[in-house]
Amino acid sequence: MNLTLKVWRQKGAADPGHFETFQPKGIVEDMSFLEMLDVVNEELIEAGKEPIAFDHDCREGICGTCSLVINGKPHGGQKATTACQLHMRKFGKWDTITIEPWRAKAFPVVKDLVVDRSAFDRIIQKGGFVSVGTGGAPDANCLPISKEVSDEAMDAAQCIGCGACVAACKNASAMLFVSAKVSHMNLLPQGKPEADRRVKNMVRQMDEEGFGACTVTGSCEAVCPKEISLNFITKMNRDYGCAILKG
């Protein structure tokens, strides 16, 4: 393939950053997108230049580490696919591909395409759990949970926390992520006792981190590699409303 890559390079949070153009050789269609970047980096290292920093780990679409905006679309725009699972056969032989980091105030750039997503962790620390210590749990089958509820909780719980929803949203809103986390717990009977506190505290942390609000554009749902539904945002809006009404 004869690709032209426009890659965002940025030394650190203070550097304004710029695009750099590459024309890598030896790219074949069977490569994954990240393997293509590996090849670019090998070339750079051999030429004595600094390779492009990008985040990745599992390379099988589950850890949520990879975080590239490819041609304006987080993860590249293939349905239900993370960047690490995207393959070069989805591109044309002569394509120009623009690669950028997640862009959001709450996700400052660390270097090149790597951003700091610790805001997500801080949101979870405010309530994304059931307060049970190890040891006191009753037998697992003591608490029957209807399959429908359990399946819906699982739909929410599948979120890999990659942040593509934030990256895609014109407001850099984290509502899809936060609502998936809130809904996973709030749907299940185990999470009910803390449901009100949870949603209030997590939403507050979300606001404090500097994410935008939801305009219901649906960009987040469209790019979510786990196809998390906007319905969870509705549900969180409802949970939050009920929680503040109760005082």
Binding site: K6, C169, T217, G218, E221, A222
Partner: peptide, 27 residues
């Protein structure tokens, strides 16, 4: 007030600023 927050939440724009899948009306 929300629009101001929303703008502030994305200080650096993408090369192509059209968000995916968002309808014209919503944008």
């Amino acid at each position: 007030s929300l629009s101001a927050d929303n703008k502030a939440a994305r200080p650096v724009a993408y090369a192509d600023a059209t968000p995916p899948a968002a309808s014209m009306a919503s944008r």
